[in-house]
């Protein structure tokens, strides 16, 4: 089939537009990548644009010899895997009953949940709660308060509601109990949404430095993002108040070092996307009921 002329123009325009947007989103990464492999002089003289100038690995070697960096990495991996697992488990267990019409009190629970999306007790009450639970300086302070994100629950509930009632009825007739329906019918059909929400949770925990800042005191437990934040933000705010007392307080770390840290911290989580991506585009009911 031949495309009409106006459609061709539209397509060309579309491609150009998308290419621009892709470039805008991609360029910061290219720039950071190039900076991280360049010499500090080249960066300072503004000679780095797309490709590394004076290629060298000194920024990377100085980071990977830093024991706090690896320690942080280990913690981040632990938080992310445990947290994603726990988050998914709790999100599914909450979303499924709420998706069932025959679950009494559903509306009250839903309203209660939505209320928390808009109102919260504030930081200090949250801190006191976590501290009274004895979770300060434990992994729970990081993963439990963020385990259930109401938005994720709502998305997952909507997805569950799309599963044909006939399938569930059929299961019940065959003698499955509720847990079995969840594990044998609902979850296998919901792989795309579980993968997607799982990724949301993983990214959120990976990027989270604030809970660690608030709830952890011992740097053995710090995630790598806190290390990154110190390196990137370290000197930017110190002197802003006029309270800097000497040169050491206004020291800025070489940008190459900042760039290398950013690369090392972001690449692993970015690498997860391609594996999950197929679920984003996959139709949800493929293979269950046809025709």
């Amino acid at each position: 089939m031949q495309d009409s002329k106006s459609y061709k123009i539209f397509k060309t325009f579309n491609v150009i537009c998308m290419a621009c947007i892709t470039f805008i989103t991609l360029y910061p990464f290219i720039y950071m990548f190039a900076q991280s492999f360049s010499s500090a002089q080249a960066v300072i003289n503004n000679r780095v644009h797309f490709l590394p100038v004076d290629f060298n690995l000194s920024a990377y070697t100085s980071i990977i010899t830093e024991s706090r960096f690896w320690n942080g990495y280990r913690n981040t991996l632990l938080f992310t895997t445990t947290g994603t697992f726990l988050g998914l488990f709790l999100t599914v267990s909450l979303a499924y009953p709420l998706s069932r019409d025959d679950f009494p009190g559903k509306d009250v629970i839903l309203k209660f949940m939505v209320f928390t999306m808009f109102f919260s007790g504030g930081l200090i009450p949250l801190y006191l709660l976590v501290s009274n639970l004895g979770w300060i300086d434990t992994i729970w302070a990081i993963i439990v308060p963020n385990a259930i994100i109401i938005f994720n629950v709502l998305v997952m509930r909507t997805f569950f509601m799309g599963i044909p009632q006939a399938l569930i009825d059929a299961g019940e007739i065959d003698g499955l109990n509720q847990l079995q329906i969840l594990s044998h019918i609902v979850i296998p059909l919901s792989k795309p949404i579980i993968a997607t929400i799982g990724l949301f949770i993983a990214v959120q925990i990976w990027n989270d430095w604030f809970s660690a800042l608030i709830f952890l005191n011992m740097d053995d437990l710090y995630p790598v993002t806190l290390f990154l934040r110190n390196i990137v933000m370290g000197s930017q705010m110190t002197a802003a108040s006029g309270q800097a007392v000497d040169s050491s307080a206004v020291t800025t770390l070489p940008q190459t070092l900042q760039a290398a840290t950013i690369m090392l911290v972001t690449i692993p989580i970015l690498a997860v996307y391609p594996f999950i991506q197929k679920y984003f585009v996959q139709g949800m009911m493929i293979g269950s009921i046809k025709g």
Partner: peptide, 17 residues
């Protein structure tokens, strides 16, 4: 240890709690 950029935030929480 608390990253310098976030020191005032952490201190506020520590003092308040």
């Amino acid at each position: 240890p608390v990253p310098e950029a976030d020191y005032t935030t952490k201190r506020r929480i520590v003092l308040n709690s």
